[in-house]
Design a protein around this nucleic acid. Structure first.
Lengths: 147, 147
DNA sequence: TTGCTCCTCACGTCACGTGAGGTGGC
DNA sequence: TTGCTCCTCACGTCACGTGAGGTGGC
């Protein structure tokens, strides 16, 4: 069920990048899940699921007042968590999902290649700065290591 | 005016690490500075200086109602910003400065070697995760690069 | 009736950003 | 009087954490 990359590239002029959830997350099941089951399965808290819903990123059905998460919701959450791992904000993920409105249920995060490049530069800067900090901390730790 | 490392090591059993501000920041001057001068000099906003003061990290004198930042305040801010660059939180920096209470004005951030090691592990994890994200983003960007 | 899971407010956290409205000295 | 810089609230942002108080079904 991976997105068909060939066709959209032709349609969109190859200026878009699709990110699917890959096999990084847990296997999606047909069994509908309660909020606590869903949370445990994906390694988040129930609060996180309610928060994503309040931001319009999830829209699980209800059984009475309780939320129930089906296949599509699970795919959807996998996509959101993928976006978070790649360092995008909630509102960026929201836009990347929204630009997939051509489909019934989004199967990928869609972004411009320009946006992708910007994100790469952002993360590269983070790695540089954190690595510099590490160099200094390691130096402090080891040079003062022997009494 | 670097801290004397030899004596404290003997006193404290060598289980402490000192971090001085080094030469990373701007040169400290004798001229007292206004808040906007101080902010510009260190590349932060006036709001940041007021925030640090509200957290007890800075305590500039007043000229009327206006804050004035002297030598010690400048050294102090350099230390705080050093701590931030190394990825410590405000409250951690606050503790590291507080444990320097033996001195009139703190000239270094003091921490246990254990704490230093924990910080190294934290930053190492960050670098690992961000690097993984970068690998994926670069792959997406380049494989979809040719129309 | 007791537990369990679910729910909805709603305030707290972190490190500031961002006006709103007011004061002092050239 | 106008500008400029300073000030103090105090709410906003980001991605949730953390109770508080209440409901439904075994």
């Amino acid at each position: 069920m991976k997105p068909n990359l060939a066709e959209p590239i032709l349609l969109m002029g190859s200026d878009m990048v699709w990110i699917d959830a890959g096999a990084s997350g847990p296997a999606v099941e047909d069994e509908p899940l309660t909020i606590s089951q869903m949370a445990e399965k994906f390694g988040v808290t129930p609060r996180t699921l309610r928060f994503y819903e309040s931001k319009g990123l999830l829209a699980p059905a209800r059984q009475g007042r309780s939320r129930i998460y089906r296949r599509d919701d699970q795919h959807h959450l996998a996509l959101i968590l993928k976006g978070r791992k790649l360092g995008f904000t909630i509102s960026e993920i929201s836009q990347m999902i929204a630009s997939e409105h051509g489909r019934a249920s989004p199967q990928a995060l869609k972004m411009t290649r320009e946006k992708c490049r910007e994100q790469i530069e952002l993360l590269e800067r983070q790695v540089r700065e954190t690595t510099e900090a590490l160099v200094e901390l390691r130096r402090l730790h080891t040079t003062l290591s022997r009494p």
